Every structure is written in structure tokens, then in C-alpha cells.
Simulated assay, not measured.
Amino acid sequence: MKPEYLIEQQNEINAHHIYRKIAGRIKDAHNKDILLKISKDELNHYHRLKAQTQRELKPNWLLINFYAVISFFLGFTFSVKLMEKAEDAQQAKYQELYDDDPLLKAIIEDEERHEKTLIDMLDEERLNYVGSIVLGLNDALVELTGALAGYTFAFQNAKIIALTGLITGISASFSMAASEFLSTRQEGESEHALKSAIYTGIAYVFTVILLITPYLLIGNPYISLATMLVVAVLIIFGFNYYISVAKDLPFKRRFFEMAGISLTVSLISFLIGVVVKVVFGFEL
């Protein structure tokens, strides 16, 4: 019995339960139907392999629940595509063995042709507003990292920096949400304008809270600044990884571009803070 049969058989039964579990909590009939179809395909593949191995394999419930939790917090599209990427990586490891085996090759080709077509048909609301989320996230990162860097040298008081950053950030989030609402309406998409504004505003506020948190928890403003920049890079990394998986977009270029802009603006703003303090002799 070929060991790769058991590996692929285990993948298929796990995937069957993952798709079915995720589908169980989705209300939208279109998405639910697609996931259940894929789940059925995975079960058929499992039985084809079982006929060869003559082994009944138990699902890996730890892995299944892991993807179910990811689906709950980050959306079913991200969870499904992350699982597919993990399967692709494992199949690539045994590619030569799979190519030489008609059964495994047929199963993999079936998945690539049918299941991935179905996955591309998934329609998740939050992904339809990625542009609005990017707008809120990117503006908050660029503007607030810069502002906090400037405030850090100008004020040199972590609590005041945090308070000023919070006021600046919350005000800017309302302004940005309003601008997105008006912009979307001007483009003739009035039915999406309010949701676009909400997604933009939430992304902005969420980013603001994460960026000012180091100043609230750490007394030294310069350590807070360094920590805030690390948090900013982690936000950029996490968001771009999420989008690269969920929307099948390139990761590295988008990550370095976004991180480079935010860190450059922070450096410039910090230097402006230095100049303001030296020239005007501002002391707090």
C-alpha cells in the first residue's frame, strides 16, 4: 500500500468535515450550497482512496476545529483558501509520486478543475468592501504613525501623546468615513455608500486603538514609539497576508510598499517634531 494514498486520504476526510462544518453556520444559500458541494467531492475522493487502502481513517478534529475557528473570526473565504494553500504545499512535496499514479493524479486534477472553480464563486460581503477597509487601514497607518512620531518628540509624555493621538485618530476616522460615503455615492453606488463608510471607519478606529496602546501601557515615550512602529508593521503584515490569501493577490510587494510608506512618513514626522521643539523651544 502506498503511503501517499493514506496521506491524501486523510486530507480528503479532514477537508470534507471542514467544508461541512463551515457550511453549517453560513446563512447565505449560495455560499452554503457551494461549500456543501465541495464537501461532497472531498468525501467521494476519500472513498475512492479507501477502496485502495482498505483503511477507515478518523478525522483530525483538532485541525477541523482550527479552521472552523479561523472561519468564524476571519471569514469562510480566508479559511477555505488557507486550507487549499496548505493542501497545495503538501501535494507539491509529493508531486513526482502523484504524477506517476493515475488515481492520485485524477483526484488532484479534479480538485484543481472543479473545487477551485467553486471556491472562486464564493461571495463574502466583507471581501466586497476590501477597498474601503484598505482605505481606512492605510490612512490610519500613514497618518497616525506619522502624527504619533511627531508628538513623541514634541510632547515627550506618553499619556498626553496617547490622548492627543486618540483625539486625532477618532476625528480623522469620522472624516475619512464621511469622505468614503460621499465618494461612493458620487460613483453612482448609493446602495453601498453607507456600508463602505462603516467599513472604512471601523478599520480606521481599530488601527488607531492598536497604535496608541503602547503609549498607554509603556511609560517611556521613545520605547512606546518603537513598539508602536512594530505594531504598525505587524498590522500591515497581518492585513496583507489576509488579503493575499483571501483574494489571491501577491503579498511581498504590497507588504513592503505599505510598510515603507508608513515608516517613511513616521521618520519625516519625527524629524518635524524635533525641528518644532528646537525652533520654538516648546516644553510641556
Rank of each mutant, 00 (worst) to 15 (best):
K2R: 15
P3L: 11
I7A: 14
Q10E: 14
N11I: 10
R20L: 04
H30R: 13
H30N: 12
D33A: 15
K37V: 07
D41S: 08
H45E: 05
A51R: 10
T53Q: 05
E56N: 11
V69S: 15
S79N: 04
K85Q: 03
E87L: 11
D88V: 02
D88Q: 04
Q90E: 11
D99E: 12
K105W: 04
I107H: 01
T117K: 09
D123A: 12
S132E: 03
L141W: 09
L141M: 13
L144V: 07
A147V: 13
A162W: 09
A162H: 10
T164M: 01
G165L: 14
L166I: 06
M176H: 01
M176D: 02
A177L: 07
E180A: 09
E180W: 01
I202E: 08
F206A: 10
L211Y: 04
L225N: 07
V231D: 11
I235D: 05
G238F: 13
Y242M: 00
Y242P: 00
S244G: 01
S244C: 00
P250A: 01
K252R: 02
A259S: 15
A259R: 14
I261R: 12
S262F: 05
L263G: 07
T264W: 08
S266K: 09
V275E: 11
V276C: 03
F282N: 00
